[in-house]
Simulated assay, not measured.
Amino acid sequence: MQYSIQRQLSVAIENKPGRLATIARLMANQGINIRDLCVIDNIEQGVIRLIPSDPEACRAALQQANYFVIEADVLVLILKDNPGQLESVCHALDKAGVNIEYAYGSEDAREEEERIVFKVSNMAEAIKAMSELEN
């Protein structure tokens, strides 16, 4: 298992066609890669959460385009794609008293690894739990 703390940006958007395309085009034009993406819908508004290759440039580009940006540190895990991996992480966080506020992820095309993003209530305790889980 690998883990790291990464910077996630969240942007509120209208829940209408083309809004994600606009954000993706803005990032492409700035040469910013979107490493992780989560889109949440609501009746009137959506939220795009993304982990960009360059958080500072991403924030600046979004703000220049008049988007309101919220930043947060998130825990990114690379897990082997085997039964029980997610359970052991969640159990370790629970045992450490760390709440998982939300999570999203995907599996690689080879079906060997999963990349999961966790927003947690206490990053220091989460990192401690992950380091203990490795041992």
Rank of each mutant, 00 (worst) to 15 (best):
D54W: 04
F118T: 02
E14H: 10
A109I: 04
I32G: 01
Q8L: 05
M123R: 08
R19L: 07
K119F: 04
P55S: 07
L9M: 06
R7T: 15
L20G: 07
K128E: 15
R35F: 04
P17C: 06
V98G: 13
S131H: 11
C58A: 15
Q64T: 13
L37V: 12
V47H: 00
I51A: 02
G105S: 06
Q64D: 12
A21R: 04
G31N: 10
N66R: 13
D54E: 14
E132A: 15
Y102E: 04
E56K: 09
R115K: 09
A72S: 15
L37Y: 03
P52R: 04
E14A: 14
R35M: 08
L50G: 03
E56V: 12
N29D: 15
V11E: 00
S4T: 14
M130K: 01
L9F: 02
Q45H: 11
R7D: 09
E71D: 07
A12H: 00
S53R: 02
Q30P: 01
S121F: 04
A24K: 01
E101N: 14
I34N: 00
Q6D: 13
V11F: 00
N122H: 15
D81C: 09
M27A: 12
F118C: 05
N66W: 13
N42W: 08
M1E: 09
Y67I: 01
S106W: 15
Q8W: 03
A126L: 09
S106I: 00
Q2C: 03
G18S: 11
Q8V: 07
N42Y: 09
V117C: 10
M27L: 10
D108I: 03
L86Y: 01
D73H: 06
N122Y: 06
A65Q: 02
D36P: 00
I100Y: 10
P55F: 07
A24C: 10
N122E: 13
I70H: 10
E14Q: 14
L79Q: 03
I32R: 01
S88E: 13
S53K: 03
K128N: 14
I70A: 12
S10T: 09
A21T: 08
E87M: 08
I34L: 10
Q64P: 01
V98H: 13
H91Y: 12
G84Y: 03
E132L: 15
E112M: 11
R49H: 11
K95Y: 12
D73Y: 02
N42K: 08
E101T: 05
Q6F: 01
L79F: 02
L86A: 10
